[in-house]
Nucleic acid binder design. Structure first.
Lengths: 181, 181
DNA sequence: TAAACATATGTGAAAATACACATATAAAAA
DNA sequence: TTTTTATATGTGTATTTTCACATATGTTTA
C-alpha cells in the first residue's frame, strides 16, 4: 500500500517515467524502501486507473516509446492525507547477510570473516557513491525547497553505512579473537 | 524462502514451539528479519512435511496444547548448505517513517519534528530493552559457544538504534534551523 | 464487572512482491 | 565479433506476506 506513496512523493517533485522512477529507487529511495521494477510499473497503472496520476505517451525514434507520469490534484491530496493522518507502520527489514551472521556459530571462523569482508566492500562502495551523490546534489549542505526530504534521508543512508562498516570491523575483531583461542 | 532458514537456525540452538519462535523473532531476530506469526506457523507446517523438522504435541490442562518442534538432520544439512553455498541476497527494507521523512518538504516543520520526536522515543525504548537483554545474556561481553551469532547481531541492533537516534537529533537540528528562517 | 492480556495454533482470502520471460534498438565494451 | 549495457514497458505466474477472523481459558488490570 505504501509503495504508491513513495511513487507519489517522487512524482510530486518531478514528472517521470516508470523507468526513471526505478532509477530513483535504486539511487535514493534505496535507503528506506525497496521495490522491483515490475511492481513499480503495475502500481503506476493502478494509480492512473484511480485518477491519482496522469500520463502522456511520448514517441521516440531510436528508443521505445515512453510514458511520462504526472501527479494529479487528487493524487497529491491523498499523499498529504496519508502523510498527516495515517499511522506509521513498523519498519520491515530482511537482511540476508545479518541472518547468516546470526548463525555464525555453525560455520568455520575464516568463512564467517569472508562474509563480513565481502559485505564491507559492498557497503564501502555504497557509501562512496552516496557521498558523491550528496556532494553533487547538496554542496556544503545546501538543499532546495523541495529537496529537504532527500537531504535528510541521504544523510541517513550515509550514517547507516558508516555504522555498518564500524560494526563490521568490530565483529571481525571478535571473530579473530575467537579464532586465536 | 529465507524465513525457513531463520527458523531452522533458531531450532538448531533449541527446540521450540511456534509461539516461542514468534517471541524470539520479536526479541532478537527483529534486528534483521521480520515475520508475522501466521507466516511462522505455516512455514513450520511446510517444513515438517518436507522432513526438515519434527514435532511432538504436548497436552496442557489450563492452556491450549502446544507443538514442540525440533530440527532434523536433513534440516540441519539444508541449513548449512544454504549458509555456505547460496548467494547472499540484497537486503530489503521498508521504513514507513523514513518514507515520510523523504517528503518532509510537503508538511509543516513542527509536524515533521513531531514525527522525529515520536520515533526517537520508540528507538530509545528499543535501545534500552536490547541493552538490558544483552547485559542479561552476555554479561561483560561473554557469550556461549552457540550464542556467537546472537551476540553479534544484538550488538548490530544496538549500534543501529544509537545511530538512528544520533541521526534523528541531527535532522531535528536541520529542521529547527529551517524553521527559524 | 468488564476489558485486556498472555497462552497457543491456526484458516481463508487478499494484497504485495518476486521471477521468468517478452519485445525492440543502439552504443559501447570485451 | 559477440556480449553487455542502456533505454523503455510490460505480462503471466508463483511465492511471500498480511489481514481478518476463529478457538479456548486463566489471570490481571481498569
Amino acid at each position: 500500500m505504501a509503495l504508491r506513496y513513495a511513487l507519489l512523493g517522487l512524482l510530486a517533485k518531478n514528472e517521470a517515467t516508470g523507468y526513471e522512477l526505478t532509477q530513483q529507487f535504486k539511487e535514493t529511495v534505496i535507503h528506506f524502501w525497496t521495490a522491483h521494477h515490475t511492481q513499480i510499473y503495475r502500481e503506476l497503472l493502478k494509480m492512473e486507473e484511480e485518477g491519482l496520476t496522469h500520463s502522456k505517451t511520448v514517441q521516440q525514434s531510436d528508443y521505445p516509446d515512453k510514458k511520462i507520469y504526472t501527479i494529479t490534484d487528487k493524487g497529491f491530496a491523498q499523499l498529504l492525507e496519508w502523510m498527516l493522518n495515517k499511522p506509521v507502520n513498523v519498519p520491515k527489514l530482511k537482511d540476508d547477510l545479518l541472518l547468516r551472521v546470526s548463525m555464525f556459530h555453525f560455520i568455520p571462523t575464516e568463512r564467517a570473516i569472508d562474509f563480513l569482508e565481502k559485505s564491507k566492500e559492498h557497503h564501502q562502495m555504497g557509501l562512496m557513491m552516496t557521498k558523491k551523490w550528496q556532494e553533487e546534489n547538496f554542496p556544503k549542505g545546501t538543499y532546495g525547497e523541495n529537496e529537504l526530504g532527500e537531504y535528510l534521508t541521504s544523510e541517513f543512508g550515509i550514517r547507516y553505512m558508516e555504522s555498518w562498516l564500524s560494526w563490521c570491523n568490530w565483529a571481525i575483531k571478535v571473530l579473530k579473537k575467537k579464532g586465536e583461542s
